[in-house]
Design a binder for these strands. Structure first.
Lengths: 195, 195
DNA sequence: GTCTATAGCGGGATAGAC
DNA sequence: GTCTATCCCGCTATAGAC
């Protein structure tokens, strides 16, 4: 892990992101020092500042990348059809996207407080956009008479909290289990909004 | 708010807990300094150490008190009857207990990482105990044939995550609304576990 | 019980050599 | 691009006067 003086590498950037994500997810942004991150990467502190202007940008970029990837992936799913079909697609997409990224999910939900006001606002918009995608599906279900939720925005938040909670305790216990987890959660979601 | 030198007060203890809870909920344990807490209370830093041996104890005591109050209150509810009745009682209890304590809820779920290993273990036991209370109800429902959840432990976690997520965004917009929120969430829970 | 003062440490960030 | 060295600041916790 230790690097020699003068050893150059153009993969230091990605390694910083990885190390920072791991450490921040485990200990929290405020509790992790730039020195710790540098040690984990195998460079000296000064080297980090070739890749990020400051610690805050490190956090924001991680969260922004995460939300950006999430929204792009959701869009790419191109979820169409009747409300029930779309809800199932959304639910399974959410689980499949979030489960392999426990660190990013943790950070995205725990470190909002540590964002500068301007950065907080930007992430807030992205989060609301994701929430809206689910709320839209629920609204369609109401219109079609397929769902019964008295408040689509509240229900959307409730369901996302339920689904995301999964990422807070689930740790890979074999790939086979994921399918089962998906089914359990889809059952809960499907019935929760049913007539 | 500012206190004069030599002014004594036996209510400083409680005020420290309040101030610490507010600040930590808003900014995070690691980001809040003892100086900030002292300023908020209106004393100098040294005075805090008449009430707590160190910063870590401040955090642990807050979380321990919260969990202790939660478990006592749950026990006092004495939830009996058939599974559906008990589930409704649990759901409404959870919401009524958590909504007035947004700071403590936030801390209890966000600051686990900042507990010493020994303290972490103690809080973990208490959290699991609360989870078990709900899992028991779900198990009873399975036995009675009133509920259909394929995994009671997973379902318990999912439902608690959903219910607790409420505390993360709900802010008092008039007491009247609480009844409505309770109904919306009870509808979701009831249907989620239904046959 | 609270104050002032300070010890001792570790933090973020920068400068300049290589 | 990385290193070493360092500035300056704020942190937790303690000591001793009042």
């Amino acid at each position: 892990m230790a690097r020699k003086q003068g050893s150059h590498s153009d993969i230091t950037g990605p390694r910083i992101e990885e190390a920072a994500a791991q450490l921040i997810a485990r200990h929290g942004y405020a509790a992790v020092s730039m020195r710790q991150i540098a040690t984990e990467v195998g460079v000296q502190v000064g080297a980090l500042y070739n890749y990020t202007p400051d610690k805050q940008s490190l956090l924001f970029d991680m969260m922004h990348n995460h939300m950006d990837t999430l929204l792009s992936a959701l869009k790419a799913e191109n979820i169409n059809g009747d409300a029930l079909t779309r809800l199932e697609a959304f639910t399974r997409f959410h689980i499949r996207f979030h489960l392999p990224r426990p660190d990013q999910v943790f950070i995205a939900y725990m470190e909002l407080r540590n964002l500068d006001p301007a950065n907080f606002a930007k992430i807030g918009v992205m989060r609301r956009s994701y929430e809206d995608a689910l709320a839209d599906i629920l609204q369609q279900g109401e219109t079609e008479g397929a769902f019964a939720v008295s408040d689509t925005r509240v229900a959307a938040r409730a369901l996302i909290a339920m689904l995301t909670g999964l990422s807070h305790w689930y740790r890979e216990e074999g790939q086979l289990e994921i399918a089962r987890i998906e089914t359990i959660y889809w059952d809960l979601v499907r019935k929760a909004v049913s007539i």
